[in-house]
């Protein structure tokens, strides 16, 4: 018997979210059975089924693995930025460099919250 992936929506505006799978011989049976398998406690407002064979699977985990260091693409690659900036500032001052104009204003946030964000970096 075919396996059918089941996708649900909590509200009509939500994207389809995978909720599980059912085994059924055809589309109508899959829809009939998915209702009681996954939506009998009021889990959503609609659902859909897709035959597993109809999912176009990439199937190349080798192409998804990092061949070189990609930590710069990860949030974890950006820790300790406050320290790094302070060290750079101190180094620049020691070398006699002076910042003689104000930093450009952050258009998205107020200055106060900007400062608070810097403090959080530390």
């Amino acid at each position: 018997m075919d396996r059918w992936e089941v996708f649900g929506k909590r509200t009509l505006d939500d994207p389809w979210t995978s909720v599980g799978a059912v085994h059924a011989p055809d589309r109508e049976m899959a829809l009939l059975l998915a209702k009681e398998s996954f939506f009998r406690h009021g889990e959503g407002v609609d659902f859909a089924v897709v035959r597993l064979d109809d999912l176009h699977v990439f199937g190349r985990s080798d192409l998804l693995a990092f061949a070189t260091d990609k930590t710069y693409r990860l949030q974890a690659g950006y820790t300790g930025m406050g320290d790094k900036r302070r060290r750079a500032t101190a180094k620049a001052q020691a070398a006699g460099a002076v910042i003689d104009r104000p930093r450009p204003a952050d258009k998205r946030v107020l200055n106060t919250s900007h400062r608070r964000r810097e403090a959080a970096d530390d």
Partner: peptide, 12 residues
């Protein structure tokens, strides 16, 4: 007959 039908029929 199978698990999914078990749930559906029990629910009915």
């Amino acid at each position: 007959p199978h698990l999914e039908e078990d749930l559906a029929f029990s629910s009915i």
